[in-house]
């Protein structure tokens, strides 16, 4: 499983970190992703907005093949996403994923959650993996919980551990699939603050969220999806002040009346 030839300082291609071309996916009769083209440059923070059922979560999950696609191509840092096997596992190691429901390994301690990937996938020595894990846990503010089990932590703490777990693989891009949607309101901010910090450090991020505040503060680009299509892409300022499409105007209008 471990591949000692791989290092953290692996040279990267100059092109986009994530590139989707003509990606299509159906769930039965539902055409959930329609001819999706998307490029994400190194260091770019892309926030994907859109109403429920617009396909934004599916898009996010397709990028590391937790959802298969029917046709089209997905490249991660110039490498085509493999369909199966070890090559796919290797590429997934380069793509960090943060889920709505945290999905921390329920039977492992916080520290073990963060060290499992580096030790078992990258072959990092245990002591070294623990040192890195403690740095990351320190950074997300949960280092003092390292020996607890996930269920003993609050939702916000669990999600920050999940971010640390993904970062421990030193990913080329981080995917966030509605990372704050399962959190109590008072815990949303601590997770968003962690994400804003990451964005400022230059991490390449694709964030599916309903948090408009995060989009305004941290996004380089907003991608607006509806009915399986990318309807509009713009900088946050442009998107929020001057949306072009009716769907986006409608979406933003509902947000304003709701708040």
């Amino acid at each position: 499983m471990s591949n000692p030839s791989r290092t953290d300082t692996e040279p990267t291609s100059g092109g986009p970190v994530v590139q989707l071309e003509k990606v299509n996916k159906h769930f039965g009769a539902l055409h959930v992703l329609q001819d999706i083209d998307l490029q994400v440059a190194r260091g770019e923070v892309v926030v994907v907005l859109g109403p429920s059922g617009s396909g934004k979560s599916t898009l996010c999950r397709a990028i590391n093949r937790l959802e298969t696609i029917d046709d089209g191509t997905i490249h991660i840092d110039g490498k085509k996403l493999p369909e199966e096997g070890k090559a796919l596992a290797r590429l997934r190691a380069d793509v960090g994923m943060v889920f709505q429901s945290f999905n921390l390994f329920a039977h492992k301690s916080i520290l073990e959650n963060v060290t499992l990937g580096p030790i078992k996938v990258k072959g990092v020595r245990k002591a070294e993996a623990e040192k890195l894990a403690m740095e990351l846990l320190e950074r997300v503010g949960v280092a003092n919980q390292k020996d607890k089990l996930p269920a003993q932590l609050s939702g916000g703490q669990q999600q920050r551990v999940a971010i640390a777990r993904a970062l421990a693989m030193r990913p080329k891009v981080m995917l966030f699939d509605e990372p704050t949607s399962a959190l109590d309101p008072e815990m949303i901010q601590e997770v968003l603050d962690t994400m804003v910090g990451l964005a400022k450090e230059g991490m390449t991020m694709i964030v599916v969220t309903h948090e408009m505040g995060f989009a305004r503060k941290a996004a380089d680009r907003v991608v607006f999806m509806a009915d399986g299509q990318i309807v509009e892409q713009a900088t946050p300022t442009e998107f929020f002040t001057n949306p072009q499409s009716d769907r986006a105007k409608d979406f933003l209008g509902k947000l304003i009346t709701n708040h």
Partner: peptide
């Protein structure tokens, strides 16, 4: 989600 998280870190 446990399996998805495991796959997502490259296992």
């Amino acid at each position: 989600g446990q399996a998805e998280a495991a796959r997502a870190i490259g296992l």
